[in-house]
């Protein structure tokens, strides 16, 4: 990537990502005005955020050309984050009979 030509190509790619991110931002705001049910809205909003996040990570953070060690590390992180969130979440829906959750 040290050659100027490659960098020019990279910069063009960054412009495209920028435009894509802007469009997705507009889309996600627009959809929020459509008043879907909560479940659908969450799915749509988080899916769009997921796409945007992946674009940033892959291209701006150069993850797409990153080494194996980084992916192994991120794999662990994703697993532990999901286990943290989902196991706590699950424990809220699995209460002993006759008890309710206080908030």
């Amino acid at each position: 990537m040290s050659q100027a030509h490659d960098i020019k190509q990279e910069v063009r790619k960054y412009w495209k990502v920028f435009v894509a991110l802007l469009i997705l931002t507009i889309v996600t705001v627009a959809i929020s005005y459509l008043q879907f049910g909560l479940a659908v809205a969450v799915m749509v909003a988080l899916s769009i955020a997921m796409v945007k996040g992946s674009l940033v990570a892959c291209f701006f953070m150069h993850l797409i050309s990153e080494k194996k060690a980084i992916f192994v590390l991120l794999g662990f992180v994703v697993f532990f984050f999901l286990s943290l969130m989902l196991l706590i979440y699950a424990s809220y829906f699995n209460l002993p009979q006759g008890t309710t959750y206080v908030s």
Binding site: L87, A90, S91, F93, N94, L95, P96, T99
Partner: peptide
């Protein structure tokens, strides 16, 4: 006070 499923896990 955990449910049986979660505590089994």
């Amino acid at each position: 006070g955990m449910g049986t499923t979660i505590s089994a896990f």
